[in-house]
Structures are given as structure tokens and as C-alpha cells.
Design a binder for these strands. Sequence first.
DNA 1: ACCTGAACACCGTTCAAGT
DNA 2: ACCTGAACACCGTTCAAGT
Lengths: 236, 236
Amino acid sequence: MTPQVEVERRVRLNRDRVLQAAVSLADEVGIEALSMRRLAQELDVVPMALYKHVENKEELLDGMVEVIVEEIDPPIRDTDWKSAVRQRVLSARRALQRHPWARQAIESRTNKTPAVLGFMDSFAGMLLAGGFSVDLTHHVMHAIGGRMWGFTQELFDDAAPVKGEAPVEVPAEVRAATVQQMQQRYPNIVAIATSRNHDDGSVVGHGCDDEFEFEFALDLLLDGFERLHERGWSSR
Amino acid sequence: MTPQVEVERRVRLNRDRVLQAAVSLADEVGIEALSMRRLAQELDVVPMALYKHVENKEELLDGMVEVIVEEIDPPIRDTDWKSAVRQRVLSARRALQRHPWARQAIESRTNKTPAVLGFMDSFAGMLLAGGFSVDLTHHVMHAIGGRMWGFTQELFDDAAPVKGEAPVEVPAEVRAATVQQMQQRYPNIVAIATSRNHDDGSVVGHGCDDEFEFEFALDLLLDGFERLHERGWSSR
DNA sequence: ACCTGAACACCGTTCAAGT
DNA sequence: ACCTGAACACCGTTCAAGT
């Protein structure tokens, strides 16, 4: 009857279109109202059509987080570490504020997707370029991560075993290949992850001492408060 | 047939038993697997029986958060502000770590329940007792809140209008009564909330300047990093 | 290669009824 | 006063089938 209309609305679906639509829908209706069925409806498609472009809802959320992380500006060049870091943190904050659901979504993800790893890697790069030791960079990443979002805690930890599933055994050669790939793409992260506990020859690291990281940031803040208090600081 | 068994398992339900069961269930199976139906099953009761003790699932989650907040130790007396604050933050952290779902649950709540308000009030009290100005206390609360969990941002804001619902108009006399009640129970919070913008006579305050709070904490950390860097700090 | 339709095993919550 | 049972309008995801 109206063939060109049919043709117009039947744009071919692809992963990117699915993710973009999901982001817009979450912006409009909130993350709790974002369902596979509703998203499909928005795209004029039957629910199951989405599953050709996205494994399941978890992977959809991973993809949405990737979209948001890619909105963050790259590091500013030719400036000191402090203003580079400051600008980038504020840029990340702006991205999160554009999408009110993003904070919660990020915090619920346990997978580290490439965009997230890339962000962390270039972030560590700013500090290392500023002359920070790998050690200090590591702790600073934890401390600043808590400011922007809550998920940095486990970034360098071993993948947490999924509830109810036996942890997958990865053959040694696959592990070695993965480490090499990681080293190529995320050299700073690998440097940090391998710098501790290298006495036992493990390349992966043993997860961070959560308690230490927490108190590290806490004490920095407490000392800061004390200094402001002593000098009679006021916001006006 | 077996009347005493029937009697034994049919313990009368009440709000507390529901909340405790919900907390245990979430501890065991995770927050995403906690459903009203599953909780009812755990309590040997039909799903709808829960709704006599809890308005709906949102209120169930509010109640679970209350349970966790009540696990936090009260402030330690007869010590300086710094170690009082430090101990209490670490106690809060321990409570959250006992219940891995709690962080996410807290962050998803927008209601401020009495236990949460009470916690914040006595927290502010530690700083005020240490001689901090109301102004500095206010910003410190924001900065430290971000360390423990992510929800302090909106604590002093006006209640965010619920999506899709017209904001409820509260009669002036009801507002006045509420403020007086708040002043009785949460004097410190009210002091903080009313100290800013008092030039226009509003008692409620206008929400905080998010951007200012964020940069306040960020710059404290950046200055801290800089100091550690300059003095060649190392974690060993 | 991509999309569909029906079906399954779940949700939160309403309503009217039972004790 | 407290609990029940059936029903409604949703979920995410499987499977086998269509083009």
C-alpha cells in the first residue's frame, strides 16, 4: 500500500542503533522503565530482534555504559597533571549528569568493557606523565574513582566469580596471550596491576587491599578538613 | 493432623520479621534476585500477605536500608572530632561490607527515612562539637558522603519531584509543623539546611550547588595528591 | 543473515473474598 | 485484623519457524 513508508521505518537494525536508542529511552523514562520489550517497541521491532545485536540485557547495559564513557573528553595535552586531571574528572562528571541513570548503571556493571579500560588507562597516563610513581598512581586512581563513581574498587581485582557458577578455568597459553594483548592496549593499567606482589611471579595481581585504599582516601580528606578548619575557611 | 507443627511455623508476621527476612535473603541471593514472591515463599506465606506490613517493594527497600543504617555504631564520646569521624566512617563501611547489596540499595533510594536522617544528624554533630562552623560542616558532609556512599548529594535538596507525578502541594501550616518536628529530631541537619540562602526567608533551603560540592572535594583530594607526590610518598 | 510468533517461567500489584 | 486466591499487565529469554 505505502511501500516507501514501509521502507523508511524499516531501517536496518544494528548494534549501534540499538545502543543509541537504549540511551535515549533511559534518558526519557529512567533506567528502571527500560525493558527489552519497550526498547523493541521504540525501534518498531519485535522484542527478539534485539537479541541478534546484543547477547542479553546485561550486555545491553554494558554497551550503554560504553556509549557514556566515550562521551568523556580525552586528556588535555600540554598542561600540568593537576589541571589535566581536574578537567578530565569534570568532563566525566558532565557526561554522567547528562544521563542521570548512568551512575547507577555503571555501579551495577561488573564487566570491564574496552571503553572503560581505555578511559582508566589514559587517566593513569596523565598521572604517570606528571612524574607520579606507579605506586602513588595506583592509590590515586582508587581515591579519585570514588569521587566520580563507585566502581573503581574492583578494577584491578581478579574477576569476581559469578554467583552460582564455577569460575571458568582459563588455559595458561590463553592467559599469556590475554596479558600480552592487555599490555598492548592498556600499558598503564598493566603496569599498575603488576607492580605489586611481583615477588611471587604472578602477572595478574591479587586484588587491592580495599581497607588500605579506603583509609588512604579517607585520611587525605580528613587532613584536608583539618587544614580548612584551622585556617577558618568559609565558602564565601 | 500435626497441629503443633502448624502452630510453630505460623509465627505471626510483622514488619520487623519481614525486613529481617528480606535482609537475610538479599545477603544470600543478591538484591537482583530478591522479589516479593520469593520473600513470601521464604516466610511460608502467600505474596500478598507481605503487603499488610509494607506498602510496596520500594518501601521494603527503604526498610532494609534502615536496618543496615541502624547497624552503624553511634559516635564515640570523649575524643577529638577527627578520630570520632574516622571511627564512625569505618563503622559505616563495615556495615556496608556485611551486606554487599546495601551500597546499590542506598544509592537507589530517594526517600530519607528516619534512621538515615538520624545518622546524618549525629554525624554533623561530631563536626559541630569539634568546633567546625555550620558552613564547613555542610561541605564536609558532602565530601565525606561521597566516600561512604553516593547519596549525600541530594540530602539537603528539596524532594525531587517524582517522574510523571505532579509535585504534591503541602499546606503552609503542615509545612511549618513538619519543620518544627524536624528541628526537634534533627537539629543539626536543620541548622545546616537553613544556614544558606536565609536572605529570602525560606526555611527549607534550595538544594546545594552540586558543582561547588563536587569541586570542593575534588580539590581537597588533588591538593592531597600533590603533597604526597612532592614528598615522594610510597605505600611501603 | 536477520526478523518473527508463540510459549515459558517469572515479576509487582489489584481486587474481592475468606477466617 | 490478618491472610488468601485468582487475575492483570507486565518482565527476560527459549525455541522453532519464516523470509
